[in-house]
């Protein structure tokens, strides 16, 4: 795992790297403690943040825009019609699951994590491909 420099803005490549690393980190945590609902719940949060970075990479690459807050990212789906509605609603479902873990300490099972991971991987792969085309 690496890190990004703190003395500059994140680049498209930084976002894509963080997305990949968060997916790796989630896989490691969920595999290390598969019966620990809290650890698996944080893995759900990590795959959500992988999606956040995938989306951020695309919007930065295509539109040159950075989002200071989650609410702004949510609005990108309305502002940029090339982002499909089904992606918006999957992203929102993933966000809700992440918040249930973070704010309510909701214990997730390995199977539930795997389902959320599938969604996150699909979104990240799609937005990464769009980001590479968008530059």
């Amino acid at each position: 795992m690496g890190s990004v420099s703190s003395d500059r803005e994140l680049t498209v490549e930084d976002h894509l790297r963080l997305a990949r690393e968060l997916l790796d980190l989630a896989a490691w945590g969920a595999a290390a403690r598969p019966d620990d609902g809290l650890a698996v719940g944080w893995a759900v949060t990590q795959v959500f943040y992988a999606a956040v970075h995938g989306l951020s990479a695309y919007v930065l690459a295509r539109h040159g825009v950075r989002a200071p807050a989650h609410q702004d990212r949510g609005r990108w789906f309305a502002e940029y019609p090339e982002l499909r509605k089904s992606e918006a609603w999957d992203y929102r479902g993933l966000k809700r699951a992440s918040e249930e873990s973070r704010y309510q300490g909701f214990p997730y099972t390995a199977a539930e994590y795997a389902a959320h991971r599938t969604t996150a991987e699909r979104l990240v792969a799609h937005w990464a491909a769009m980001a590479r085309k968008g530059r």
Binding site: W89, R96, A97, Q104, F106
Partner: peptide, 28 residues
Amino acid sequence: GVDVARDYQISHALGDLVEDYQISTVAR
């Protein structure tokens, strides 16, 4: 309770009717 498929179904069903929503279980 949590049912991942249903939880995504909820988000898709709400679609553009709301920008966002909150979710909880009966137990909480």
